[in-house]
Write a protein that binds this DNA or RNA. Structure first.
Ligand SMILES: [Zn+2]
Ligand SMILES: [Zn+2]
Ligand SMILES: [Zn+2]
Ligand SMILES: [Zn+2]
Lengths: 151, 151
DNA sequence: CCCTTAATGATAATTGATGCCGATAGTGTT
DNA sequence: AACACTATCGGCATCAATTATCATTAAGGG
C-alpha cells in the first residue's frame, strides 16, 4: 500500500516479466487524478476516457482493473449497484471505509484507523500479504428510513 | 442485528404488509442450521434444498435472499468467486469478518469487536439504521505467495 | 369464507464480465 | 538500430449470475 507512479508501476511489471503500456499508464493516471470520494466502474472509466479522446477498449479496461486490484494498486469496491467500483488505494492516512445505504445507494466515506489496524494485524497474524482492507457498513440512511417505499 | 425466528420474521413482514410463506420459512431455517464458517450462494442453496426434498424455485431463492439481506436477516458477502454468498447475520459475539486470498479464494473468518464497534458507532453518528458491518481483507495467503502462478 | 393482492414458478431477457484470436507493440538481446 | 519473442490490445462471441415478465397460487384481514 504505497503510492504508485508510472515508473514504479513499470518497474514492478517488468520484474514479473510483464509490460508497461500506454493503456495502463492512462488508466493509472485517470485514477490518480480522480477526486477523493469518487469511485469508477469499468463502464464509467470507459466513457470517461472516451470523452477525453483517450479511448481504450472495454476488454482492456476490465483486464487492467483486475490486474491493478490484484497488485494492490486499486481497491475493488462492492457498493450497492450490482457491479464493481474502483478507486486508487492510497496509504494511511488517506485510507478510508464506506457506509452504504442499501435503499438509495448513497455512499459515505469515513476514516477509522482502528479498523485499518485490526485488518493489518489480522493479515500479519495469518501470514497473508495485505492488499486492501475495508470496513463496509450496510445500513439505511435517515431519509430512506422515513420513506414509505418498500425495501 | 438480533436473532430471528419464524414468528418474529412473520411479525416483521406482516407489519409492512407483506406475507410469510413456507418458502421463506424454509430458507430462514436452512441458514439457521448452517454451520458457522459456511456461506451459500443462490445456486448452493437451491441444490441443497433440492436434495432434502424442499425444492424452491431459483427465482424465489434470489428474491428471498435479497429481501432478507435488506431486512438485515442475512449478510451478503462478496467473496472472491464472482457471485454473492450469504450467511445468517448473528449478533455479537458471533459476529465475524473475512480474510480472503485473491489468488486461491480461500476465506478465513475472524472476530474483531473493535472493528464491529467502529462500524456501529459510525452508523449511529450518521443516523443510519445498521444492517451489517463487515471488515473485508483482500490479501495473498502464504502458499500463494510461494506459488509462481501469475497474479 | 371471500376478496385483495403479495408471492411463486417457469421462462425469457439482461448485463457485468470473461474467453478467444489475429494484429500490434513492449522488452531484452544481438 | 534491427530482431525475436511474446505480452497485450481491440473487437467480438460467449458465459453465467441475476433480474424481468406474467399467468397462477395462496396468505391474511375483514
Ligand atoms: Zn472510497
Ligand atoms: Zn438511503
Ligand atoms: Zn462468514
Ligand atoms: Zn491463496
Amino acid at each position: 500500500m504505497y503510492a504508485y507512479t508510472a515508473q514504479s508501476l513499470k518497474a514492478e511489471l517488468n520484474e514479473r516479466g510483464w509490460r508497461m503500456t500506454p493503456q495502463r499508464e492512462t488508466i493509472l493516471d485517470a485514477f490518480q487524478h480522480l477526486d477523493e470520494g469518487k469511485h469508477l466502474s469499468a463502464e464509467d472509466l470507459h466513457e470517461c476516457l472516451e470523452q477525453t479522446g483517450q479511448g481504450i477498449s472495454l476488454s482492456t479496461i476490465y483486464r487492467t482493473l483486475k490486474l491493478m486490484a490484484r497488485m494492490g494498486i486499486l481497491r475493488e469496491l462492492e457498493l450497492a449497484e450490482g457491479h464493481k467500483h474502483y478507486e486508487i488505494n492510497r496509504p494511511y492516512p488517506h485510507h478510508h471505509h464506506h457506509l452504504i445505504c442499501v435503499k438509495c445507494n448513497k455512499t459515505l466515506e469515513f476514516k477509522n484507523d482502528t479498523a485499518l489496524k485490526a485488518g493489518v494485524r489480522q493479515a500479519e497474524k495469518e501470514g497473508y500479504h495485505l492488499l486492501d482492507c475495508q470496513l463496509t457498513i450496510h445500513a439505511v440512511c435517515p431519509s430512506c428510513q422515513r420513506s414509505i417505499v418498500p425495501i
